[in-house]
């Protein structure tokens, strides 16, 4: 059985990736991205720019039409397609994507039970994951009894329960109200600082990407490729003071302009 405690030093590299769907739509073309261990990266771009496709390629849920997606580090080297990836990745979808027939604990336990990790060890991990997202005491609740924000927390706990090296998040907070989103943004930063996993966060919100990330990758659409990227060295923990600071505003303006350029360029191409 693969060891789930894979540590944080997996890096992923996408080189010259093209993804063309059967319908003829070119989602990504000439897409290059290197993920460094432990960093927080946002993929920022307009809807339909292939952000989600890039995430699915990294997760191995899709294969690139051309180009390579390669892994290195303490993960299982050379094992791109096999089971080696399964313990390395946690995926959070835009919807909470919970099993409505299972309790909160049952949902979080899913990745463990699919790998036949049962008993006390699993229970402990589920409890720990629930604590991390601030939902202890909700083990026996059903998803329908929870608010949208709480469901998303369960979804994040499920992604964390295998202690993955890489956490992929596909616009996880897009459907939530602003108050909840800000709170989850802060909690996500705290979580990331605590566990030091690599996080790839897909969003179409400039403000969210600037607030959360160390690195912001701006993408063009049709076909999706990297337009430019920004680094921010604003110190963590970031809080509402950062949200109202001049640095934050300035960076948001820069990124917004880049996004506007990328969008017009993409549409014109």
């Amino acid at each position: 059985m693969a060891d789930l405690q894979s540590g944080g030093d997996v890096s992923v590299s996408l080189q010259g990736v093209n993804k063309t769907f059967a319908s003829g739509v070119v989602a990504l073309d000439g897409f290059n991205l290197d993920l460094r261990p432990g960093e927080f990266v946002s993929l920022l771009g307009p809807s339909g720019c292939g952000k989600s496709t890039a995430l699915r390629l990294i997760a191995g849920l899709m294969e690139p039409t051309r180009g390579t997606v390669s892994w290195s580090g303490s993960g299982k080297p050379g094992d791109r397609h096999g089971s080696g990836r399964h313990g390395e990745i946690g995926f959070v979808f835009q919807e909470p994507t919970l099993m409505p027939w299972a309790t909160v604990a049952g949902n979080i336990n899913l990745p463990l039970s699919l790998r036949r990790i049962d008993g006390g060890k699993a229970t402990e991990r589920v409890a720990a994951a629930l604590r991390q997202v601030g939902l202890d005491g909700f083990e026996l609740a059903y998803p329908r009894e929870l608010s949208g924000g709480m469901k998303m927390r369960v979804s994040i706990a499920r992604a964390l329960v295998t202690e993955p090296a890489l956490l992929l998040m596909d616009e996880p907070f897009a459907a939530l109200d602003e108050v909840t989103r800000f709170k989850l943004n802060d909690d996500l930063i705290a979580l990331w600082r605590a566990v030091k996993r690599t996080v790839v966060f897909v969003t179409h919100s400039v403000f969210e990407s600037v607030y959360l990330s160390e690195r912001i990758v701006v993408m063009t659409s049709r076909p999706g490729r990297v337009f430019t990227e920004f680094k921010t060295d604003a110190p963590y923990p970031r809080d509402r003071h950062f949200r109202t600071s001049a640095d934050y505003a300035a960076l948001c303006r820069q990124v917004s302009e880049a996004l506007a350029d990328a969008t017009s360029k993409g549409a014109g191409a």
């Binding site: 699915r56 997760a59 191995g60 849920l61 089971s83 399964h86 990745i89 995926f91 979808f93 919807e95 994507t97 099993m99 027939w101 299972a102 899913l110 990745p111 039970s113 699919l114 790998r115 295998t162």
Partner: peptide, 29 residues
């Protein structure tokens, strides 16, 4: 079955039997 849930099962390397018993049958109930 919810496509994302199906993807999730795939991501965690679920077997055919696990997908049937843990995902498809409950969803079809």
């Amino acid at each position: 079955v919810d496509h994302n849930l199906a993807d999730l099962f795939r991501l965690y390397g679920a077997s055919r039997w696990q997908v049937l018993r843990r995902l498809k049958l409950p969803a079809a109930l």
